[in-house]
Design a protein around this nucleic acid. Structure first.
Lengths: 336, 336
DNA sequence: AACGTTACCGAAAACGTTTCCAATGATTAG
DNA sequence: CTAATCATTGGAAACGTTTTCGGTAACGTT
């Protein structure tokens, strides 16, 4: 089971190990002839350098961590796969850490993960980083990219990157659309109200749109779920109970919109005639839902690519930390 | 940026590095008092052993690879996450390798992955392993678990494990159900016919059900997609064209069933009155589809758990290679 | 009192790389 | 022709662990 190592290659090729190492690492200072010879032997013996040894020596890995908090969002899974693909193309490996433990600070998880795995970079899909300190991030010593913008004024923005969308604006746009087509009594199924989480920001967009159209805020039109079908189904039932005169509902995720749809149909109302329905994310399913769901499209592809490219640039020192807001687009389909 | 290592701990604790190593690795032969003392220092200095060094020395890692092949199947993403959770609880790390390259042999990808990352075990979600040789698997030197049973008679079954469902039987059951409720003209949207792939097996179940009910096989009722909404939508359109008298359709994945539904509605037919529709997988969407989709439930939870547990058992030498077929269940909902 | 056990511990040799340093021969400059 | 530079190479020292191999001290047994 013992595999061939650099010494074997060196011995077989009749050169020193240093030269072999140079060839492996594409150092320029080795004669072309020698290089070819060594390359041939490497090929022939199917030699693959031992990563543990390389990492040990270089005191770093080639691994980039992705932390996903909570499974609820199918977008995360997709982003992860796309990011993985790009990163692995240029030689990095991604290590996954998925957790749902709401009790523990996400920054602590991140630090532990980076340190234990000797990660070279960290990408966080979701999670709450509102309370992190500049020093904590700096201490981690590796580039960190968050996929959700945060409003943490005490955190130095030159110490991490972020790429995401403007949740407040995107939510505003779709609710604004709902208003302009005549809806006055618009419910919302969200995850929070005043905080800076994704759900909080979207709720704030909803409220601003209402305010813009001089629609008063009424508490009965507000309900909370946890990004699952089931929770939204239940939330919608409560909404229907509390505010039977609703003409439209904005759910802050497609999943929740679809969950809500079931509750709406169960009381015999139709979409969009009796109640219009809008989601958020534009997951694949949205367009194939019956009827096709009006929603906000997250630029998934760009989001993933940008994140991956930025990480690579950061690692190669070709870039400073950046904060990007990507454009969302309204997808007006048949539920409104 | 230099972090504390085992020598530092040893020096600070006033012991030899060997003793510290023993403590870290839970060896019994160290005095309780000394152990506590060292533990305290480790805690205090926030020492985390360098994995590269450990792996180098032990010439193995604690990493388990998961390979996901191909089209984005929401089931795979979920399984992966569940497996990750269990494995990480007992101290393993999972490394992800996601690829869609249809041109390359899956077994070659697997071998390369295991070797390069020094993996301790490998789990393959999807992929085609029909042509692998016993020696190839053996040569890999680590336990491998496939999540789809295969019909490869030349491959020694004691050399790998598998946990999955009986695709042929499950497909038979749902099509049989379709027949017993009176359908005669049943279309299928699948991915293949005669091969031993997942799609192939399900097609074979479909055909056996038909045969059992003395329904002749007619080629016009057969169409192919690639597990995406879009492809199934197109396939269904062709089916509607070729066989306008269809009264039921079996799509071998829920995603494809949902894609097909759109085509059906587009020609003005209703589900299930005009055409009954059955899927496969029971993804979350299925129950919340409109109308709720009849399908075959894959025991996702059990599948993931069993796979993870088996891997752990295999690694700890508590188990031989096993081949498990898990039960599926018919979920009769509103599309049939 | 001598001996064998046992419990505990440290020194040092690996593990497979990368990289610094020095060495060689060849080439160019003066 | 000599000195200086250059291109190319190999030796050997790290990187941070684990583990083998003894060694010491304490103890119980004759």
């Amino acid at each position: 089971m013992k595999s061939v190592n650099i010494k074997d290659i060196a011995r077989i090729a009749g050169v020193g190990v240093a030269t072999v190492s140079r060839v492996i690492n594409h150092h320029p200072d080795v004669k072309e002839e020698t290089r070819q010879h060594i390359l041939k032997i490497i090929e022939e013996y199917n030699y693959i350098p031992n990563n543990s040894a390389r990492y040990l020596k270089r005191s770093e890995s080639n691994d980039i961590g992705i932390i996903i908090k909570g499974i609820y969002n199918p977008l995360f899974a997709e982003m992860m796969q796309k990011i993985e693909r790009i990163l692995s193309q240029v030689g990095y490996t991604v290590m996954l850490h998925h957790h749902m433990d709401m009790a523990i600070r996400d920054m602590d998880v991140a630090q532990e993960f980076v340190k234990e795995k000797r990660l070279k970079g960290l990408i966080c899909l979701g999670g709450d980083f509102e309370d992190v300190q500049t020093d904590e991030v700096r201490q981690m010593g590796v580039p960190m990219i968050l996929t959700s913008a945060l409003q943490n004024s005490s955190l130095d923005r030159n110490v991490y990157s972020s790429v995401g969308i403007d949740n407040e604006v995107a939510a505003f746009e779709i609710v604004d659309y709902l208003c302009t087509v005549g809806h006055q009594k618009i419910g919302i199924i969200t995850t929070g109200e005043h905080d800076q989480s994704i759900g909080g920001r979207r709720t704030q967009g909803y409220m601003r749109a209402l305010a813009t159209h001089d629609i008063p805020k009424v508490d009965e039109r507000f309900e909370v779920g946890d990004y699952t079908f089931e929770s939204a189904y239940l939330a919608m039932k409560r909404l229907l109970e509390k505010a039977p005169d609703l003409t439209a509902v904005f759910a802050i995720s497609d999943i929740m919109a679809i969950g809500a749809a079931r509750a709406i149909r169960e009381v015999g109302k139709t979409i969009p005639e009796d109640i219009a329905l809008a989601g958020f994310d534009d997951i694949d399913y949205a367009a194939f839902f019956n009827p096709p769901l009006t929603t906000v499209k997250q630029p998934l592809e760009t989001l993933s690519e940008t994140t991956a490219e930025l990480m690579i640039a950061l690692l190669e020192d070709r870039s400073e930390h950046e904060h990007m807001m990507l454009q969302t687009t309204l997808k007006i389909r048949k539920t409104t």
